[in-house]
Amino acid sequence: MNQYIIETNKLSKKFGNFIAVDNINLKVPKGEIYGFLGPNGAGKSTTIRMLLGLVRPTNGNVTIFGKPMKECRLEILKKVGSMVEYPSYYGHLTAYENLDLARRILEVDQKEIDRVLEIVKLTDVKNKAVKKFSLGMKQRLGIAQALLGNPELLILDEPTNGLDPSGIHEIRDLICSLPKTQGITVFVSSHILNEIELIANHVGIMKKGKLIFQGTIDELKGKSRTEIRMDVRPAEAALKQLTTKGYTVYQKNGLLNIQDKGINPAHINRELVLNGYDVYQISSQHDTIEDIFLHLTDEKE
């Protein structure tokens, strides 16, 4: 059998004429943190809602733990903890009471509440009404609820949305520790790449409803482009020279840039010097992961 915790097959969702999610095939391996990336409105939330059975797919299907979502929804959801966008809670109830509502439905022991409160460090304020909580605390409560009953899979949609830097840091540490300490698979979405880069080892990138990349962070880095930038004089003549040699060269801010893959800067340098050009400066630039992400999501179809 497969070792994927989440698998979707040609999953699609249309709202009227608008295609929110278009034929995506997600593959989320067991025990990993899978980062689900994409700009706002790329279809991440709709996809997550389909994974949880909140939204009915127009086409395709979702398989979680090797079981079809359509038929085994209850069985699957027993082992899935989730928080979709901002956390939902009943403001006039205390943190403990909020968790107790979910606990009763999940049919787990009352001790579980204390355990998850301990994990998210809310034990001290468990008898305080949630409406008095800060946003970060509400967010942690949301994660505590997702952790109730030791789920095997955690689905978090934008868990650090609206948090301050220290709050983001806390949530990030918490998410990172889960697969190690509890063996949980985590599926986490975000529109901020840096955040995913720090915690995830697998990524899926969405753009306009399509899954445009899926793989490990290293594979994503492999998509990095190299650019050679040089200050050559006279620039115009050098540009002509390099173009006739078959390189794709363009001029920007008085510097020449070559973007071809697998070119050697030493080669270029020698060629220019031997042909009598003066090379004042030559450097090779690699895309940061952010550049790759922007490059992938900005690309024209």
Binding site: L54, L77, Y86, S88, A102, I105, L106
Partner: peptide
Amino acid sequence: QVEFDRNSWKSLLSLPVT
């Protein structure tokens, strides 16, 4: 109203309930 206040529908219906 309590389910709409904080959009609790989605978390309620993500629990194992029909």
